[in-house]
Design a protein around this nucleic acid. Structure first.
Lengths: 149, 149
DNA sequence: TGTCATCTCACATATTTTGTCGGCTTTATC
DNA sequence: GATAAAGCCGACAAAATATGTGAGATGACA
């Protein structure tokens, strides 16, 4: 059970975008190239990813020279869950939760477990916004109070 | 983010084993073939899976005719988390949580999110045992009070 | 001795993920 | 206008992983 690179990249990229689009004066578009360099993500891969984000209305593009991408809405209103939906990351433990087959909820021994897990994960994803994530990027606080696990 | 078939099969298989090993008198070994048939899992695939479970000391094998597998410990003492560890299912959202690379915990914008998610999931996995899961198999209650999602 | 069943290990297949490339369109700036 | 910066698009390539199969060997019971 691991998240795909698309989601991991996408979330880091959006957080980076959020942290840099207003760093100058007003909202200035940020290029894929810059994000790719800072976040060490293959540029051509990241480009595809932003195409998805645009089609999902999470970002808006500014074409032409000095163009780039801008968040379509305030970072505080975009949840991580929404990003994952747009990027096509399934949050599914059992087959019942992915679309694929298995409607056998009444007999399946593991059905309730998968439901509990998904519920718990969804709750976190729905209540965390890009702003929450980006804070760390903006201030680069270099705190040391992390759990090591 | 989805669980592998190994884990989904494995959990169903163990639950089935748990429900059937004492159905007769005392602990009677259950064959891979029987479990495969009941759970609709490819037998040869399931066999490999039980090899892992045996090497992980979750089940014990009884070779020869009338042989099969038996749980190595009471079902109430085997957690789902343990089963997943033995089956090699990684519970990792970010790279930091899988072993692979990225020790960049201080700067990574998503680090804390991944930690919260894993913590929440682990709590459920560690506190759910095979017995909890198998109950449903044993009684086949056919309740209708499920959440549809 | 024959049959049932586990054990082992190599191979086969399929799917998904991850990443690349080339050429096109749009637009700011010189 | 010309140029260069940037997004846009679609097809393809490579790699990794997941999933499944098969043949034989070993061991135990009847």
């Amino acid at each position: 059970m691991k998240l795909s690179a698309v989601t991991r990249y996408g979330l880091r990229a959006l957080s980076d975008l959020c942290a840099h689009e207003e760093a100058q004066e007003g909202k200035k578009p940020v290029t894929v190239g810059d994000i790719a360099r800072r976040q060490e993500i293959p540029p051509s891969y990241l480009e595809q990813l932003f195409a998805k984000l645009r089609r999902g209305h999470l970002v808006e593009s500014v074409r032409g020279a000095q163009g780039g991408y801008v968040l379509a809405r305030p970072a505080g209103e975009i949840t991580v869950a929404e990003v994952m939906r747009v990027l096509g990351e399934p949050i599914a433990f059992g087959d019942c939760q992915a679309g694929t087959g298995c409607r056998n909820t009444a007999e399946c021994a593991t059905y309730e477990l998968w439901q509990r897990l998904k519920g718990s994960v969804d709750e976190i994803l729905e209540s965390t916004t890009l702003e929450d994530i980006a804070k760390k990027n903006k201030k680069a606080p270099r705190q040391e109070n992390f759990l090591d696990s």
